[in-house]
Each structure stands twice: as structure tokens, then as C-alpha cells.
């Protein structure tokens, strides 16, 4: 029974990871791609790790997968934030149909 629930969690995780990768290909610019990559890959990977934890139980490997969940949730938004900020500072343009760019407006005001 525990195996089946674990496998169900892993399947959900794989599905979200695949959708995240699809978003990486389909969406138009860096920032939109980061959105898909960060969200889907965080929940997808956490779901796979939680499924692995349910299957192996409270063993050394299970505890490691729980710790990995915490670290993935803490670090992946920080990485996305760093990439987005770096891309904007390096002058990567937003997609042509974007409606507003308050960050660029404020930066121009300063310099």
C-alpha cells in the first residue's frame, strides 16, 4: 500500500517536471521560462523525493530525501531570483508583448 502511494507521488512529480521542461521550450523569454522552470521543478522534485521517502521509510536514504526537500525549497527560488536579476542587469530584453517594465523605468531614473 505504501509503495503504491509512493509511486503515485513519483508519477505526479515526473508529470510536473516534464511540464516544466515543456514550458522551458515553449515560453518566449528568460523571465517566463524561469517561472515555469522554478515552480514546476521545485514541486516536481519535492514530490519525487517524498515518494522515495514513503517507499523506503525512516532509513538513512529516507531522511536524506526529506532533507533534500527542505534544501530544494530554500535554494531554487534564490537561484531563480539571482538569474532574473543578473539577466536584467546584463540587458536582456523582456518579450515584445510585455505590458510593463517598472524595474527598467526606475533604473533609468537613477542614472
Amino acid at each position: 500500500m505504501r509503495d503504491i502511494i509512493g509511486l503515485a507521488f513519483m508519477t505526479i512529480g515526473f508529470t510536473f517536471d516534464v511540464i516544466g521542461c515543456l514550458g522551458l521550450v515553449r515560453l518566449p523569454d528568460v523571465y517566463n521560462r524561469l517561472q515555469a522552470a522554478t515552480k514546476c521543478v521545485t514541486l516536481g522534485t519535492c514530490s519525487i523525493l517524498f515518494g522515495a521517502f514513503l517507499i523506503v521509510g525512516f532509513t538513512a536514504a529516507g531522511m536524506k530525501s526529506l532533507m533534500c526537500m527542505v534544501f530544494v525549497v530554500l535554494t531554487s527560488p534564490v537561484a531563480a531570483h539571482a538569474i532574473a536579476r543578473g539577466a536584467h542587469k546584463a540587458g536582456v530584453k523582456l518579450w515584445k508583448d510585455s505590458v510593463i517594465d517598472a524595474y527598467a523605468e526606475d533604473k533609468e531614473g537613477k542614472t
Partner: peptide, 23 residues
């Protein structure tokens, strides 16, 4: 909710996005 939202936007054939940076 965020994941279902992103999955919907990615899988939608017309790509319903309206991106921008707000303050």
C-alpha cells in the same frame, strides 16, 4: 495552485500570457 496554473498556461495551445515587471 502555482503548479497547476503554470501547467495550464504551458499546455494551452494559444499560450495565454501577458508578462511584465511590476513594483
Amino acid at each position: 495552485k502555482a503548479n497547476i496554473d503554470v501547467a495550464f498556461r504551458v499546455l494551452h495551445p494559444r499560450l495565454p500570457i501577458r508578462p511584465g515587471i511590476v513594483k
